[in-house]
Computed example of a mutant assay.
Amino acid sequence: MGSPTESAEAEFQPFFQNRVRFAETDQQGIVFYGEYFTFQDETVSQFFREIGYGYERMAADGWQTHVANTELNYRDAAEFGDVLVNELRVVEMGSASFTFEYRVKRNADGGLLADGMVTHVAVDLETEETRPVPDAFREAVAAFQGGLETDG
């Protein structure tokens, strides 16, 4: 596995907006902490679609991603009815993995609710063995986001 490439220049971009549903809250009336992982996943999926490299294209190209690590830091509470803006950016691109930095804010006041990281590993669709991140994906990320080298 090669060394990761850092991208300090890429700005966060909003990819997914959602209104907190009652079912996503706990007995305290705030968003249950586990729901943020779903929000994070929806944001990553939207990122893939935005760069023109959704799951369908991954499958057609013979690969998929597996989540290898995720972490979230909870900063403030969201409540039923709040509109959330979910943002992310790619911050590392290794030979077989890439890492997103994620954050979610309350739309009404811009307050930071949670932030963290999620790392995906490229996996061959048939063998499920780790494989290099395809150059076409690297190029799509770099073209969309900028500031990310595409050496693999």
Rank of each mutant, 00 (worst) to 15 (best):
M1I: 11
G2A: 14
G2H: 09
G2F: 11
T5P: 00
E6F: 13
E6L: 07
E6Q: 11
E6V: 02
S7V: 05
S7F: 02
A8H: 14
A8M: 12
A8S: 14
E9G: 05
A10T: 10
A10F: 03
A10Q: 04
F12M: 11
Q13T: 13
Q13S: 13
Q13D: 09
F15C: 00
F16D: 07
Q17K: 15
R19Q: 09
V20S: 09
V20D: 07
A23D: 01
E24K: 09
E24N: 06
E24A: 10
T25Q: 11
T25M: 03
Q27T: 13
G29F: 02
G29L: 03
I30S: 05
V31M: 01
F32K: 06
Y33C: 04
E35V: 12
Y36F: 11
F37E: 07
T38E: 15
F39A: 04
F39N: 03
Q40P: 00
Q40R: 08
D41A: 09
T43D: 04
T43E: 05
V44T: 07
F47D: 11
I51W: 05
G52N: 08
Y53L: 07
Y53P: 00
G54F: 10
Y55F: 15
Y55S: 02
E56W: 05
R57Q: 15
A59R: 14
W63Y: 12
W63N: 05
Q64E: 15
H66G: 05
H66N: 07
A68Y: 15
N69S: 10
T70M: 14
E71W: 06
L72T: 12
L72C: 07
Y74F: 11
A77F: 10
E79V: 14
E79Q: 12
F80W: 10
F80P: 01
G81L: 11
G81H: 05
D82T: 01
D82Y: 01
D82E: 05
V83M: 14
V85I: 15
V85G: 04
V85R: 13
L88G: 01
R89I: 06
V90G: 00
M93I: 00
A96H: 04
A96P: 04
S97D: 04
S97W: 13
F98W: 14
E101K: 12
E101R: 11
V104F: 08
V104C: 13
K105R: 15
K105L: 10
R106N: 03
N107T: 12
N107C: 04
N107E: 14
A108E: 11
G110Q: 15
G110K: 11
G111P: 00
G111H: 05
G111C: 05
L112Q: 12
L112R: 15
D115Y: 08
G116T: 09
G116P: 01
M117G: 03
M117S: 02
M117I: 14
V118C: 03
V118L: 02
V118D: 00
H120F: 13
V121N: 01
D124C: 06
E126D: 12
E126C: 03
T127N: 06
E129Y: 05
T130E: 10
T130W: 06
V133W: 09
D135N: 09
A136T: 14
F137S: 02
A142F: 02
F144Y: 13
F144P: 01
Q145K: 04
Q145V: 14
G147M: 08
L148I: 13
L148A: 08
D151C: 00
